[in-house]
Structures are given as structure tokens and as C-alpha cells.
Nucleic acid binder design. Structure first.
Length: 276
DNA sequence: ATGTCTTTGATTCAAAGA
């Protein structure tokens, strides 16, 4: 099973690039963030024409997430409210469309667009921290349900200094401050592992390059797009890569896709030896 | 340092968000 995550910064502006990437890479599920389109205007037909199903949760102009899958996903859930019906903060934190999940072959694929926060002094920064605290409560319920979890998305956090291009200058600033790093680590708990780091421990691997200041040409990016796996899936992971190629396109997204390959479902036990 | 790109909404741009 191949699962990918890509912040496309407008699915309509990037439609041809997304379709071409799907056809070249053939993931079972592509998780999109920042689709920036209301559900009635989502380009469903273009995806259907190349053999993909869509589960979407969008809004006008900002945010928006989608699950593009080879097979239709089961039990699609939208927003924090789906798992937290009694939570006092979940309804307000679900107004911005940032959370969608679905089941494929018994795997819960959860696609997130974590708030950016803007700056430490912005009112969007405490919103980001509240959102991450709500994610922790959401994941606790998800764990109770027992499905293996693949959680992907644009986390808007460089969790460790090796995920930043200039840690001396940038650690402590937005996307690398201790409160947001701690909030994400708390939500992850002991259950979820950043699978990219299982295969690639070194710095210098980025998933986002700012449009400004020639960041792409100077290769000054951040690794803020992540794939987290629960234990059952982590043992099945055969590779995880960031595909830099689309960032070099004309009129690119500022993010590159991240892809994980899983040997899932696990091979059946071979019973032949016990056969009479 | 206010850089660049996308969207919107009110009139060929400016504001907002990332």
C-alpha cells in the first residue's frame, strides 16, 4: 500500500500537476491539504476520469483537505467532532476544514492540515496550540477504536532542529517553538512514529520551501510535512521519501509530496507445512 | 528585509493568509 501527502496550495490551480503526479506515482491514497475550494466546486470529475475516488472537506479560499483514493474509502470522518461529539472546543476548531479520515484495508488514514500560527505574537498562535491539544484528545479516541493509524499532513512544525535549515537562527520561532513542538509530541505520545526518520536520520531533507527569498534555488527548506505510523504499520514500512520533483515545476506548490510504502496487508501465514 | 504566491472582493488593484 502506498500513501502520499501533499499540500498543493489550491487544488484547482495545481490540478494538472496533481493529476500528472498521481498517474506517475500511483498511490493508493493521496492526501491533499490546502485545497482552497468549497465542496461544490471541487474538481471531482477530473479525478474520477483517471480512476480515483474523492472524499473531501473544503471551504472557500482557505484550508481544505481531501482524500484521493484508488478504491473508495470506508467510514469517512470529517472534523474533530466526528470522534469528539461532547468536546466543548471541537465544534469551533472544526469550522476551519483541516481534518478528514477514511479506512482502507483496515488502515485508518488520517489527513491533517495543522494551523500555521503566523507568528508567536499572533492570535493564530494560541489557536494552533488549542488545535493541537484537541488533536491529542481526538487521537486518544482513535486509539480506543483499535484501527492501525497512518496520520499524514502538513503539520506546520519542524519537530527537531534537523528539520530546519538554520536551527541557530530559527529554533524558537514560529513552526519551531517549544510550546508547539511539545504540543505535537504530546499528541503523538508513544504510539506514533515519524516514519521518514526511520529511513533518513540526516538533516538537509525538506518538504517545504518558502516562495520568498529564493528558498528553493538556495535549498533552504523545512521538513514540516510528516507521516506518522502506529506500531502495527511501522513494522510494515518499506520506505518513505520526499519527492522534490514537483517543487521544481513551473507554478509549483511550495510543498513537495511525501510518500510511504507499506507491505500491507501483511502476508498470510503459510500453512502448507502443517498440511497432512 | 515585507521578500512571493493564491484567493477574494471591490473595480485594475489591495488585503489577507501562508
Amino acid at each position: 500500500m502506498r500513501i502520499a501527502s501533499w499540500n498543493v496550495n489550491s487544488v484547482r490551480t495545481r490540478l494538472d500537476q496533481v493529476l500528472a503526479w498521481l498517474q506517475a506515482n500511483e498511490p493508493d491514497v493521496l492526501c491533499l491539504q490546502e485545497t482552497k475550494v468549497s465542496d461544490d466546486l471541487f474538481p471531482l470529475q477530473a479525478f474520477q476520469e483517471i480512476g480515483y475516488h474523492c472524499a473531501i472537506s473544503g471551504q472557500k479560499a482557505y484550508n481544505g483537505v481531501a482524500l484521493i483514493s484508488r478504491e473508495p474509502l470506508e467510514d469517512v470522518q470529517v472534523g474533530f467532532e466526528a470522534l469528539l461529539p461532547e468536546d466543548p472546543q471541537a465544534p469551533q476548531l472544526s469550522e476551519q476544514k483541516r481534518v478528514i479520515s477514511g479506512l482502507l484495508d483496515g488502515v485508518r488514514v488520517l489527513n491533517l492540515y495543522v494551523p500555521n500560527g503566523s507568528s508567536l505574537k499572533s492570535e493564530k498562535y494560541p489557536y494552533k496550540l488549542e488545535w493541537l491539544a484537541c488533536l491529542q484528545r481526538y487521537l486518544a479516541v482513535q486509539e480506543e477504536q483499535g484501527d492501525p493509524l497512518c496520520m499524514v499532513g502538513d503539520f506546520n512544525i519542524g519537530l527537531e532542529d534537523r528539520d530546519l535549515p538554520d536551527p541557530e537562527r530559527l529554533s524558537g520561532t514560529i513552526m519551531a517553538s517549544n510550546p508547539e513542538r511539545t504540543a505535537l509530541r504530546t499528541a503523538l505520545g508513544d504510539r506514533l512514529t515519524d516514519v521518514f526518520r526511520v529511513f533518513e536520520p540526516s538533516s538537509g531533507h525538506w518538504s517545504w520551501w518558502d516562495y520568498r527569498s529564493g528558498a528553493w534555488d538556495r535549498d533552504l527548506g523545512w521538513r514540516i510535512d510528516h507521516i506518522y505510523l502506529s506500531e502495527e504499520l511501522l513494522g510494515c514500512a518499506t520506505g518513505c521519501v520526499i519527492d522534490k520533483q514537483p517543487r521544481g515545476n513551473v507554478q509549483p506548490s511550495d510543498h513537495a509530496p511525501v510518500v510511504v510504502n507499506l507491505a500491507w496487508p501483511p502476508e498470510e501465514e503459510d500453512d502448507d507445512e502443517s498440511w497432512p
